[in-house]
């Protein structure tokens, strides 16, 4: 369980929220704090007030994965192989273990055909797929996917939803504007009005309200 209490971070304030294990869709209009919530739960942002505990531990002591909205921003290396091997290499694993982790992550994210490619030759969507694979290779407890479906076509996205769910990460937080993804998720949290606007079916129902408002 990720437990938030009395959290104030940037424009977001959450008195109490519990996020169970599994795939959680985080939805809300632009500027309602989706990125802020993901950053706080992965320890990339320290809240101004309040506490967040991931299974009883502060987020900074828990392994995290992050994939940004702009896929270019989630990659470090010029070769896809180096990208996927980096968590194993940084952790000092043997080359065999590192390679096994990288291949496993590439298989789960559907990035195997990109393995020997140069990152420069990948399109935005392909970079997103590689970024997800690299995040899986670090075997995170909390995996945050920040609106990264924005650049993926329906087919790619439909492949990645089960990949994210079966990633081995105990908590997957995926911020999105996609209704189908939200429906497919195990849980849903809607942000709005400076805090949590609803969870579960109430969050999903907001899509109808937004479509009516449009």
């Amino acid at each position: 369980m990720i437990a938030l209490s009395g959290v104030r971070a940037r424009t977001l304030s959450i008195d109490s929220l519990a996020i169970p294990p599994g795939l959680t869709a985080v939805v809300g209009l632009n500027g309602t704090g989706k990125t802020t919530l993901l950053e706080a739960c992965t320890g990339l942002l320290l809240p101004d007030e309040g506490t967040i505990l991931v299974d009883g531990l502060p987020p900074r002591e828990v392994d995290a994965g992050w994939v940004s909205a702009s896929p270019d921003r989630s990659l470090l290396f010029s070769r896809v192989d180096d990208e996927l091997a980096s968590p194993g290499r940084f952790a000092g694993l043997s080359p065999i273990e590192t390679a096994a982790r990288a291949t496993g992550a590439a298989e789960r994210a559907g990035a195997v055909r990109h393995l020997s490619r140069s990152v420069r030759t990948l399109s935005g969507g392909e970079r997103g797929v590689v970024a997800l694979a690299a995040a899986l290779a670090s075997q995170p407890t909390v995996l945050a996917l920040d609106e990264f479906d924005g650049f993926l076509d329906r087919e790619t996205l439909d492949d990645l939803i089960p990949a994210a769910r079966d990633s081995g990460a105990r908590f997957v937080l995926w911020s999105t504007h996609d209704r189908e993804l939200t429906r497919a998720a195990d849980h849903a949290i809607a942000l709005g009005g400076g805090g949590v606007a609803g969870t579960g079916a109430a969050a999903l129902a907001l899509f109808d309200a937004w479509e009516r408002a449009a």
Partner: peptide, 18 residues
């Protein structure tokens, strides 16, 4: 972004690469 990516990939200085 670079600092963030290095952090989430578990970089603390050094690594093993043959």
């Amino acid at each position: 972004d670079l600092a963030r990516n290095l952090a989430v990939r578990g970089y603390h200085g050094g690594g093993r690469h043959d």
